[in-house]
Design a protein around this nucleic acid. Sequence first.
DNA 1: TAGATTGTTAATCGATTAACAATC
DNA 2: TAGATTGTTAATCGATTAACAATC
Lengths: 223, 223
Amino acid sequence: MRRYHLEAIENLGSRRSALPIYLRFLNELSLSNVQTVSSQDLGEKLDLNPAQIRKDLAYFGEFGRKGVGYNVDYLIEKIRQILKLDKTMNVALIGTGNLGRALCNYNTYIKDNMKIVAVFDSDTSKAGSSINHLTVQPMDELPATVAKLDITVGIITVPAPEAQNVAEQFVAAGIRGILNFAPVVLKAPRGVRIHHADFTAELLSLAYYMDYNDQSQNGSASV
Amino acid sequence: MRRYHLEAIENLGSRRSALPIYLRFLNELSLSNVQTVSSQDLGEKLDLNPAQIRKDLAYFGEFGRKGVGYNVDYLIEKIRQILKLDKTMNVALIGTGNLGRALCNYNTYIKDNMKIVAVFDSDTSKAGSSINHLTVQPMDELPATVAKLDITVGIITVPAPEAQNVAEQFVAAGIRGILNFAPVVLKAPRGVRIHHADFTAELLSLAYYMDYNDQSQNGSASV
DNA sequence: TAGATTGTTAATCGATTAACAATC
DNA sequence: TAGATTGTTAATCGATTAACAATC
């Protein structure tokens, strides 16, 4: 009786590696003036298999030195290059509910390379109001603003039923990547990348796993 | 030259199935008075392989009828049982920044089975202020409140450097599951389940994939 | 009955891990 | 030199998909 599949929902870290995750920890190390790190160290801290980390990095180049490890600052530089974090991207956000406003306030920059430069809401009564130095615009200004400000990324924070429609307006306006917070699976044409930031799914599965943990305490199974 | 690994960051949907995702779509169908659905239909809508969906569901029981498909309402009921969505869980949230406040306002219920019933902030000057009918409490009241209100789930919306510390306070107070929004990998003892809702990692990898799409348009590769 | 669709086995595919030669 | 740690190959493990008998 294996729990073969729901395991795949897994919390981050254990499975599926990710350069962004490495980068975050490397930045910490750099701040603490650590100069060198081994795949062993990284693996321990991030709960990953060292072989996996070496393989991930080796895929993009030879960044380490045998017998020594990885130079922290050099590795940071390389990963930033790979992830294209050098050039800043302009971001438009649609949906000025609580979550949308939170993101706008988060910082004008959400992470080093992403900057929210325009905010929209389909509710025209909201147009003209101000969020963290940005003026909320009506939807019909989207195409012109995207072109004018060279916006390449869109963030969707509208209610689920509106999300697909909003995504299509982003695509029509020429956006290349979308981060979707609405709890629906969105479709987009090839050439437009959609990432989902769906914490409601994480919450829903949490209860399941909490009980699963109960069981494993009564004897069997790992995790 | 395969992009073998970063593919794993993938947007939801394509790989790794998940009962919560099925449930969401089934609920839509139910609202539209659709009575029956096939793994084919589900697969098309959710961008998943029908065999995968059948396998996922079959693992928990025989919910379908050969030659017919799945009864929507029956399947909803079963999935809700599996995910333990029947009983409500009480949730405490720590960190009343923009994101924390957004979640509190989201609804007193965040999803059917989770209810934020207490809010904390380590900044004692914030204690006593009110967010959506909840009074912000100082951290030292956490253990007593968790016990009194039978809180089993914790949400972390503090800055990254504080997150591990906050998680440990949750654990000490007896919480069983944590949803972490801070961009760090948290450690917790066995028996405590941690899920990550890390949209910053999704954002960071977005740029990488947007360029990758460029390349695939110039000839090669799938995805 | 003929057509459809499940549940499940078998085949494929891909990802993770172990192991080790190369080398700092 | 001896010890450490990479990059990478080979072995394992697990997940995805195809295929099909069972059956509605």
